[in-house]
Design a protein around this nucleic acid. Sequence first.
DNA 1: CCCATCCTTACGTTTACCTTACATTTAAGA
DNA 2: TCTTAAATGTAAGGTAAACGTAAGGATGGG
Lengths: 234, 234
Amino acid sequence: MDHYYLKQKKILLVDDEREILAMITDFLSEDGYTQIRTAGTVKEALRTAEEWKPDFAVLDVMLPDGDGFFLFEQMRKFTQIPVLFLTARGEDEDRIRGLGLGADDYMVKPFLPKELLLRIGIILRRYYREEDPVVRLAGSRIDFARAEVVKNGEHLPLTAKEHEILSALCRNAGRIVTIDQLCEAAWGENPFGYENSLMAHIRRIREKIEENPSKPVSLITVKGLGYKLVPEGR
Amino acid sequence: MDHYYLKQKKILLVDDEREILAMITDFLSEDGYTQIRTAGTVKEALRTAEEWKPDFAVLDVMLPDGDGFFLFEQMRKFTQIPVLFLTARGEDEDRIRGLGLGADDYMVKPFLPKELLLRIGIILRRYYREEDPVVRLAGSRIDFARAEVVKNGEHLPLTAKEHEILSALCRNAGRIVTIDQLCEAAWGENPFGYENSLMAHIRRIREKIEENPSKPVSLITVKGLGYKLVPEGR
DNA sequence: CCCATCCTTACGTTTACCTTACATTTAAGA
DNA sequence: TCTTAAATGTAAGGTAAACGTAAGGATGGG
């Protein structure tokens, strides 16, 4: 899965029909999205948007206490998140209006859920493309694209081997990775005779990611089996 | 006008109907776009795409010598530019197919020209938003449009290769760009055997952008992984 | 208490990269 | 077409960060 971190973006759905909200929510969570909230009115939507700070919003144009365009303009006063409009009316005027205001997309009801998913995916990818997948640990976080770990605001660079080893651990986050597997990840074919070297690297990694390298809480050794990387909050 | 440089992006229009091409061209140039080319067949489109290197493409699905989806897949082999599909058929299957392949949007004919303009604007803004025509570094700033760097009031011109390499670094500002990626950016297909030449260019670039080229703070080397360009203020 | 396993540190070695000078290609102008 | 300068590519010696190694120390299970 290439863009897994996008699935953790907070999505706000605003519609006055409960069934529509339920349906979209179902499809989104089935597709892997984990953070979804809904609202049925402009008022409710504004409150949620302000407090919860979603990363993306789907707005119905027709709402009981105002229309989606008004809601959009209110939201733009405090957030620049991308927005997709849903509209029952297919009128040209409305279609243009949403986009002209600065929305990212719109869809006409009734729509195919599959298409909504695709469009949401496109927008999120486009908008949050610059963000790197970051792995959060107990006392630090790892940014692989920049090859550095941030601990207490300090930026510590990772070397090539450290990067390889951490990647391998990360790919199996939480699970045990054997020493053989780690050697293979770092040295390719002929990963023999490097067990000691691996140990030295583990030490150097711990000095970067751990609060106290001698009492590790993130990069744990499982005696006789290997190592494992535990993400923030177990 | 905030995004004036977006109007200079190269746009490729592919459709088999001359009138449609003419109409879209008119609307685009009226809206300020300066670089527009058209093609009527898959073959023609591929040639233009490869030689002219457009920044964005509008593809009709129905073409005399193949369909737009095939064309899209061929183009994806050498470019990652955003694409919008035009389709006469409103069939669900087709709508989904284009988006599923990785297109950025699609529109069903007949469409409102105004809406097409808005959608193209949205895509370009999102996609090229980070391409700041001037990039600020620790001790200098790069002006890509003029192909020069300004250091202590001095204007130092960039050569073609330096420009390519810096662009590639800039597109991933802060992130690591591998030597392979940089070679590919500068020498296209067959980026092999230029590693040493790249190094020489890196040196020359450093002499232009760095206060002290031997102690770089903007164009950093990450041993074993690649290089990265760090913008002003980390 | 002993053995196995892993930790820790210091230090020697390697290799990826730097630097420079020079050769070659390209492009512009005469 | 020829001339020339700038841009680009190549090669070789130098360097330091990253890596590997080894040896003594800790730790815990049996």
